[in-house]
Amino acid sequence: MSVKHSLLALLGEGPQYGAALRSEFESRTGGTWPLNVGQVYTTLGRLERDGLVVKEVVPEGAGDSSIRYAVTPAGRDEVARWWVEPVDRASTPRQELAMKLALAVTVPGVDVTRTVQVQRRATMQHLQELTRLKRTGGADLAWSLVLENLIFTAEAELRWLDHVEAQVTRAAGAARVRAHRGDVASSAVTEQDAEAPGTGPAHPSVTAGARPGARR
């Protein structure tokens, strides 16, 4: 799983302390992938080494200070690439995809539809190849069972991606209706905020609506 890209994505919203990043990551992904603080700082150290984040010293009075991290332009480019690249099935466990989409619907300005679409194309192409191998593979039972397992997995992933897309579309529709009615003043403020220039063409109302309350 790509902790590196997840942390970069969170830093894209503004500078953060390491501990805060860790809890933000866990709350956004439903606590499915617990991180320890050491893992977070090791990752931040590597990101800093690679020029993707920088340390900022924040004075705290009485001579004390603390360190927080901010994303660099190169880091922003890296995370922008991550959103639109399919997860590489050959080298990473499958959970990266669930993690990526959990973050994509909460980080403002991500074109979730495009993220889903790019992944769907890659997974469909993978399924086509698996089917071709099965068709031409002969009668080896063990091999055909392994292939079937991969086919079922790809099929399930495609169904899940359709589900994600439908949910995102529905959430965007519901948010639009709410905005039209103007029945909740605070939600109208959130909408304007999300639709401000520079947040991108994604589903701003979705990202705003789905955001967890806790911000650090």
Partner: peptide, 27 residues
């Protein structure tokens, strides 16, 4: 059914009457 589409050489994705994506030739 994605499993059936797996038999195809190319898969075209339609949405709202427009082709939004398509798989290319074999990998």
């Amino acid at each position: 059914d994605a499993r059936l589409a797996g038999w195809a050489d190319r898969v075209v994705f339609l949405k709202d009457g427009v082709v939004v994506d398509a798989t290319q030739g074999p990998l």
